[in-house]
């Protein structure tokens, strides 16, 4: 696989960018910075929403299924948490790249993952997934089995019990997991840069933009203003999540 041409960012581009700011005060932002913020939010939202049902299902499987060898699946789900994100990104590249295992199939379907927003979303989703599963799983393990048995004896089927008992009772954990995952996605760097590259306006999220600034002479104040945005965003996410979790709180 030829990876050499994967970094299109040129030094000329960096110059353009710093000039646009012209050494202004800290909070001024170039249109590209705004784009990076919007992209970050898009990627994090998409990754979180896509992962939530899958994470819920995975947690359900780990908690309630009685299949032997569950620990193997547990290990697989947790792997992205302990692997360096760059490794995860590289594995995804091998899997989804044009010459990768699934490349030809994706090509036929006209789907391109590498260097696209889809790639950034997939990278974030995979890296954040274990955090989501972990959180939901702890919540589900806390559900007294008798609630489930009670609903079954009251005439509820499997799906019915899932949506009227298990989902509401693990609601807090799901929100907590989604928050963690959203925050993690906002900060995703390693896997994203390998799978989606660092293309301004297409795949350049906040951390990638900061990385660019720190590699550019005179980019420090720009980097700092994006850091500030990062802090504010994370804080807002935490506040929203806390208030949502409170509305799901079951104890009086």
């Amino acid at each position: 696989m030829d990876l050499n041409h994967r970094f299109p960012a040129s030094s000329q581009y960096h110059e353009n960018r710093t000039q646009a700011h012209g050494g202004d005060t800290m909070v001024t932002m170039s249109p590209q910075d705004i784009q990076a913020i919007v992209l970050s939010l898009k990627v994090a939202t998409a990754a979180t929403l896509l992962s939530a049902p899958a994470g819920f299902a995975a947690a359900y499987f780990l908690v309630f299924s009685k299949i032997p060898g569950k620990t193997v699946f547990e290990g697989i789900f947790n792997l992205p948490l302990v692997l360096p994100p760059v490794v995860v990104g590289y594995l995804l590249l091998i899997l989804l790249g044009q010459n990768g295992f699934m490349g030809p199939l994706l090509g036929k379907l006209g789907i391109r993952v590498i260097f696209t927003l889809k790639g950034a979303v997939i990278a974030s989703a995979v890296v954040g997934f274990p955090l989501l599963v972990r959180s939901v799983r702890i919540g589900m393990e806390g559900i007294d089995e008798h609630y489930i048995l009670a609903s079954r004896t009251l005439g509820a089927g499997w799906w019915d019990t899932l949506f009227t008992v298990i989902l509401p009772l693990s609601g807090r954990a799901l929100i907590a997991g989604m928050t963690l995952m959203f925050a993690r996605s906002l900060g995703e760097f390693g896997a994203t840069i390998i799978l989606a590259g660092n293309i301004p306006g297409i795949t350049q999220t906040i951390p990638l933009a900061i990385y660019d600034y720190t590699n550019t002479p005179g980019g420090d104040s720009m980097a700092l203003s994006l850091c500030l945005v990062s802090i504010v965003l994370s804080f807002v996410v935490l506040m929203i999540s806390e208030s949502m979790a409170r509305s799901f709180k079951i104890r009086p």
């Binding site: 008798h146 609630y147 009670a150 609903s151 079954r152 004896t153 005439g155 509820a156 079951i250 104890r251």
Partner: peptide, 16 residues
């Protein structure tokens, strides 16, 4: 679900 045998558990287990 289809047995229609009701159960009252020791600790009530009302849906919280």
């Amino acid at each position: 679900k289809n047995r229609r045998i009701g159960v009252v558990f020791q600790h009530a287990h009302l849906f919280p």
